[in-house]
């Protein structure tokens, strides 16, 4: 059953552009039962930067647990991958 209320987080991927980034991260998120709401990507100063807005309402665990797993995945494919709760961004960057 889907939860009514969303629990949004942002995944940040930084590193060298290569094939299969979206596929591998999406695959991981799918296995964690995390839904992707939006994807944004761009080359900033020659660095590949991608953010994913994800909904963790039905996720198997929370940011504190998923975070280290994503970092590990990132290390395997040579990228830096982080996740943080959306509310943190909202309070920090909006007056």
């Amino acid at each position: 059953m889907k939860s009514e209320e969303k629990n949004l987080a942002i995944v940040l991927v930084v590193g060298k552009d290569q094939t299969g980034i979206v596929a591998q991260v999406s695959d991981f998120l799918w296995k964690e039962n995390i839904n992707i709401e939006d994807i944004n990507q761009k080359i900033m100063q020659g660095v590949f930067v991608m953010t994913m807005l994800v909904d963790m309402a039905d996720a198997r665990s929370d940011v504190g647990v998923v975070g280290p797993k994503l970092e590990k995945l990132g290390a395997e494919i040579g990228l830096s991958i982080q996740i943080q709760h959306h509310k943190i961004f909202e309070v920090m960057h909006r007056v």
């Binding site: 942002i10 940040l12 930084v14 953010t51 961004f89 909202e90």
Partner: peptide, 12 residues
């Protein structure tokens, strides 16, 4: 509200 790439990067 949309959070820009730059803002995400800064917080990270």
């Amino acid at each position: 509200q949309t959070i820009s790439l730059e803002e995400v990067y800064e917080t990270y």
